[in-house]
Amino acid sequence: MMVRHGKTVLFFIGLTLWAAQPVLAAEGKTLQIDGSTTVGPLGDAFAEVFKELHPDVSITVKKTGSGDGAAALIDGRCDIAMMSRFMKDKEFQQAVEKGVFPVAHVIAMDGVCVVVHPSNPVTELRTEQIRDIYMGKITNWKELGGPDMPIVPVSRDTSSGTYESFHSMVMHNEKMAANVEYVNSNPQAHARVRSTPGAIGYVGIGFLDRYVKALKVDGVMPTRSTIAKGIYPVSRPLFLFTNGYPKLGSIIHAFCTFYLTEKGQEIIEAKGFVPVTEY
């Protein structure tokens, strides 16, 4: 009994050592997708439909954030990196140094919508006001014409692409105040705002529903058309990054051009994003 267990242990230790080489990455019919939690639902849905079209391909979608998606692509840990921002200079440099040449595919547009609880009478804010809220200069809704209620600013965690978009487009790279709450995903941000009358948060346009109220930013309401046209001040493209342009006809190529098909477009709309092409 004991001896057999000992063997099992040895066996598994051996296996671990063997595992030191990434075994699976070398295999052909797998597709590793990694990256942004914003693009993640799209990746999931694409993968789901893809599974029906190509039953022999095993697709893994990991939603670990844009930064990690870039790093994974650079390290060769994934085939496709989903990103809600463009690659940074540093990441590009690292990639090229490692012989990876990132190619961007814009698959959809997304607007970062500023949302509040529906009981909040405020309907419109200027970017400066939003910035002041997140910098802690405005702390009560009554300063903005709302009820006497402390503002609970909710932000995405600092590694997310949504945060970076918001940070550069609204915050102009100013640091946020200490009382800002951090949540780890869009749904969580949505849930926090939904359940908190005094909260303000920001989510992708796919997360607007009856439970939260989107604010006009600089007089522009976030809608599909304002985002697609880029009128809404906080809109951004969503990317897939691949190492070089994928070989035509390969599974990666099929995945990266899936957004052009009608089904892909429908999914993009179903998931609440804005397709880049009109069909």
């Binding site: 075994v23 939603k63 749904p187 849930a191």
Partner: peptide, 24 residues
């Protein structure tokens, strides 16, 4: 399969509570 990641109940509980819009 030893070298694949897997879903798990405990992580699933976390993810389904806070990480998924559909789940809401």
């Amino acid at each position: 399969w030893l070298f694949q990641p897997t879903r798990a109940l405990s992580y699933g509980c976390y993810d389904i509570t806070v990480g998924d819009r559909l789940a809401m």
